[in-house]
């Protein structure tokens, strides 16, 4: 549980109280994300849940930016906020989800779920804080383009990760075909 720190801590160990500006923004956005996520999983209005999910996912894109992963951030915005949420909204519509408050949005499993989630959170937070209490991320730009810029990411992706990338394209094709087959209405004689 005490991972070997691969790099020496840059510039000593800054305290948690003397937060940098990036950290403050990160924390605030993080709080917004958490709040939006909580509302997403607890709200009784199904469409609201999807909209709050947009807030949470957008917040995560901001966090990516703060972590200098620009390309990922835009991909996040494009795919998640742009397509996934739209897909989810369509799903809600197609399944005739009621507009407005539906009193039974939560199943009877809620208390068990709450217990499990809280226990998992407690365990993981304890472990993570215990492990990474003193770890520092050096976000300073040393040389060249940013670490998460499209250039750097593209270089890595098409130089080192070409094969998985192509495999992923096959997977996406398979998913595409599968989704079409699943959602296509069958004719009566085909069964």
């Amino acid at each position: 549980m005490n991972p070997v720190v691969p790099q020496p801590l840059a510039a000593g160990h800054p305290g948690f109280l003397s937060a940098t500006g990036v950290e403050v923004v990160f924390l605030l956005v993080g709080l917004v994300i958490l709040g939006a996520a909580l509302v997403t999983v607890t709200t009784k209005q199904l469409v609201h849940a999807a909209l709050w999910l947009v807030v949470a996912l957008g917040g995560i894109a901001v966090e990516y930016l703060l972590l200098t992963a620009e390309f990922i951030a835009w991909v996040q915005v494009l795919i998640y906020v742009g397509s996934v949420v739209v897909l989810l909204l369509f799903g809600l519509m197609l399944t005739r989800a009621p507009i407005g408050r539906s009193p039974d949005a939560d199943s009877g499993n809620r208390w068990v779920a709450l217990t499990v989630a809280l226990a998992a959170a407690a365990t993981l937070v304890t472990v993570v804080i215990d492990a990474f209490r003193a770890t520092w991320i050096d976000l300073e730009q040393r040389t060249g383009p940013g670490k998460g810029s499209s250039e750097v990411t593209g270089t890595a992706l098409f130089r080192h990760w070409v094969l998985p990338f192509e495999a992923l394209s096959v997977l996406l094709l398979a998913a595409l075909v599968g989704a079409i087959v699943l959602s296509r209405r069958q004719k009566a004689g085909e069964r």
């Binding site: 549980m1 005490n2 199943s107 499993n109 068990v112 779920a113 499990v116 226990a119 998992a120 365990t123 472990v127």
Partner: peptide
């Protein structure tokens, strides 16, 4: 037949295992 029950049980079990592993590791450490 309730998938959520299964999943809850599964996660509870893995959580317990994780806690045991953590406690054992720190105890050993």
């Amino acid at each position: 037949g309730n998938v959520q029950t299964y999943l809850g049980a599964l996660l509870t079990g893995s959580l317990v295992l994780a806690v045991i592993a953590v406690v054992a590791a720190t105890g050993n450490g």
